[in-house]
Design a protein around this nucleic acid. Structure first.
Length: 683
RNA sequence: GCGCCCGUAGCUCAGCUGGAUAGAGCGAUUGCCUCCGGAGCAAUAGGCCGGGAGUUCGAAUCUCUCCGGGCGCACCA
């Protein structure tokens, strides 16, 4: 509604400027005045016209206001006034806007028609998930929900690198450091599974966490000769895993599958689910690369280097950053010409090594051709993990005959931290070079900065912090060093804290009810915490902030919802009934809306929902949505303290107040659901 | 050396398609439960928006430059 009103306003203003001054403006800026008292929209258009008309902006604004006021064609706009140094301020007919908003239930979602594929989480299946992985999964899952709210078909993928060095390292750890056999590892895993409750003792991914840290340390802790030997053991293990069909590969498969299951369970605690788990083992065994290699050669994206340091490799020219100004462009052209004389691009990216093996980026190119349906080959599929409402499939060499189809998407989002922006750019460059420019344009590296620990937090966790690290703002999490906050530990800690509160506040509820509420609040706190930072901000993790339930937090928003629900419970009516009663109200009874900005603020913000959704998708920034819902909760709390609903004696006023609460409830619940946060009945 | 991100209140962060007195949360100080739940509300204090130059009627926002911090730049994945 908000966007539509803006469009209508802009069209009218454009018309008036056209007929009055005979000027056709390209785009007209529209913003909000600093205070609601000044109106809902502000147009600084007079400043722009001032130069062309050689007139003071104030005068132009006054002329525009007069022209617009004299033709009250659209009842939605109540007034046009010049303000400040030359703004044109516009007031809405609040009663009319509110009546429209009340009847406008769940907005019909605009369907862009694009089939989207979002990849997120993608944790190496060799250790427990940590806070950094949580940021990834929460960002990704939230963006999926937002795309779906926008009416798009979305497939969610979690890429499993089950044949990489990280898995190899844990295999080396179990087999060579601990001397465990395949049977013993199998036994360990099933014993852990039988144990069930991961809160007691160490779950298998926790065991792996320690093994991984130990083996990483072991590689560098021996004599020079020993280390060399250990490293060669590492690569021999890696190669056996990649090749498959041997006992080492079987151990790797066993470990990575067990850890993967635990990751899915951890994420399920946060209500995060997946549709498909493509694994690197299938990308290798189904020879995706061979097909991609042919295409890359044919299109000339890859060429065989015969000179220089990359002699004997198939390489690709790296993406060049766009020249910013023309003289730079000239310089770059000059440089590339001199490069051409030399004929060797030393900066090229190696895709196939001189020994014939393919690099990570090469495999990634093949995988992304598949994502867009450009490879000409598909995975096999089998069911792997059952969610309450759907099945999650996994890749396999020879799959089931009947399976859903994944891949072949029109647009993709890869939720991957910013450290991987170079390889991501390489893949996009390859797609573009192969002529898949539309696909390259719809490839979004949904990049975000890492989660690090504050030195204080690291000390709190019992890690020894180096002298030079103490002065730093944050320290990078490291799986190799076993340095970080495990996801399940954090979730457990949050639930313990919220449980303490619910036990105190809800003594009459049953044990399981209190636990359920505590979990909803804990998850709300965690998800909101990860979403309130914009993607480009490094989160310096600290328990004090993450365990906060006051102020700008998920529980703050949930609490506003609980308050509204209490009001309706005591009023013995429903939000739906309140909105129906409101719609039947005589417009003259809505005068309060005109006077009381704290009431109107809720209606206005509610109207902005679809604008916020659009902005969030356009910028791939879920933080906007988080901020929006927090502000609405804030406005509701303000309203709540100024107007006592249940004791209101004027029936028309009471109807308006109840309808305002109903609108706030509807919006808060819906938008929290976009963030993957539940709205408890009580807390 | 090259590329990307960040530098805004004591702390953690918004604001960056240029626009009216720069916002929020936490922390500090002070009020608010005879009244819908205080995980709340209201108020006060606290800012040369890292420095400098430029573009503009107008710059936290755009450009350049310098300073400070972080992360990437392998025939590793």
């Amino acid at each position: 509604m908000y966007l539509e009103l803006q469009q209508r306003l802009l069209a009218r203003v454009r018309e008036v400027i056209q007929s009055k001054y005979e000027i056709e403006l390209g785009s007209i800026a529209i913003e909000q005045p600093p205070d609601l008292k000044m109106g809902e929209f502000a147009l600084p258009v007079a400043f722009e016209l001032a130069r062309k008309l050689r007139k003071a902006p104030k005068i132009i604004a006054a002329e525009l206001a007069e022209a617009l006021s004299s033709d009250p064609a659209d009842p939605s706009f109540a007034s046009f006034e010049p303000a400040g140094a030359g703004y044109l301020n516009v007031r809405l007919n609040r009663a009319l806007a509110a009546t429209e908003a009340a009847s406008e239930n769940k907005l019909a979602a605009p369907n862009s028609g694009l089939h989207v594929l979002v990849e997120h989480t993608s944790i190496n299946p060799n250790k427990a998930a940590h806070v950094g992985h949580l940021r990834n999964a929460i960002l990704g899952d939230t963006f999926v929900r937002i795309l779906r709210a926008n009416g798009q078909k979305v497939d969610v993928q979690n890429y499993i690198d089950n044949t990489g060095v990280q898995v190899a390292d844990v295999v080396v750890g179990f087999v060579h450091l601990e001397g465990k056999s395949l049977a013993e590892i199998r036994e360990l895993i099933s014993a852990k599974e039988a144990e069930g409750n991961r809160l007691d003792g160490q779950s298998f991914d926790y065991v792996c966490w320690d093994v991984y840290a130990r083996v990483s340390q072991w590689y560098g802790s021996g004599s020079e000769d020993e280390n060399k030997q250990r490293k060669s053991l590492r690569y021999a293990t890696l190669h056996e895993i990649e090749a498959g069909g041997n006992e080492t590969a079987e151990v790797a498969e066993l470990i990575s599958t067990a850890v993967l299951r635990l990751h899915l369970e951890t994420m399920l605690r946060l209500d995060i689910t997946y549709d498909f788990l493509p694994r690197e083992s299938e990308i290798l065994h189904l020879k995706f690369w061979d097909l991609a290699f042919e295409q890359l050669k044919q299109t000339g994206v890859l060429y065989f280097e015969t000179e220089g340091k990359n002699k004997g490799c198939w390489v690709m020219t790296r993406p060049k950053s766009e020249p910013k100004i023309e003289k730079d462009a000239a310089k770059i052209t000059e440089e590339s010409e001199t490069n051409e004389d030399a004929k060797v691009d030393e900066d090229a990216k190696v895709i196939v090594r001189s020994n014939g093996t393919v690099t990570y980026v090469g495999k990634d190119i093949a995988y992304h051709l598949w994502k867009f349906g450009l490879l000409g080959r598909d995975f096999g599929y089998r069911p792997f993990f059952t969610y309450p409402d759907h099945e999650c499939w996994i890749s396999t060499e020879h799959g089931e005959a009947h399976h859903p189809h994944f891949g072949g998407a029109q647009a993709i989002y890869n939720v991957i931290d910013s450290r991987q922006s170079d390889p991501q750019a390489n893949v996009i460059q390859a797609l573009r070079g192969m002529g898949h420019t539309a696909e390259a344009d719809r490839y979004t590296h949904f990049s975000y900065e890492m989660v690090a620990l504050t030195p204080r937090c690291a000390i709190e966790l019992g890690y020894t912090v180096a002298e030079e690290d103490l002065a730093r703002p944050y320290i990078e999490v490291s799986g190799r060093k076993g340095f970080g906050v495990k996801a399940d530990d954090l979730i457990d800690k949050l639930i313990v804290a919220t449980r303490k509160e619910t036990d105190a506040r809800q003594p009459d509820r049953t044990e399981s009810e209190r636990q359920k509420i505590a979990e909803q609040i804990a998850i709300g706190a965690l998800r909101y915490f990860m979403l309130k930072f914009t993607r480009g901000t490094v989160i310096a993790f600290d328990f004090k902030d993450a365990l906060s339930f006051e102020g700008e937090t998920g529980p703050y928003v949930q609490y506003a919802i609980v308050r509204i629900r209490n009001i309706f419970r005591k009023a013995e009516t429903t939000p739906e009934a309140a909105l129906t009663a409101f719609a039947e109200l005589d417009p003259s009874a809505l005068l309060l809306l005109q006077e009381a900005d704290e009431i109107w603020a809720i209606w206005l913000r509610s109207a902005k929902r679809s604008a916020v959704l659009a902005q969030c998708i356009a910028t791939s920034e879920p933080a906007y949505v988080a901020r929006h819902v927090f502000q609405l909760a804030q406005e509701f709390n303000n309203f709540y303290h100024r107007h006592h609903i249940l004791t209101e004696e004027d029936p028309a006023r009471k109807t308006l107040l109840l309808a305002t609460a109903a609108i706030a409830l509807r919006e808060l619940v819906l938008i929290l659901s976009w963030l993957g946060i539940e709205s408890p009945e009580v807390m």
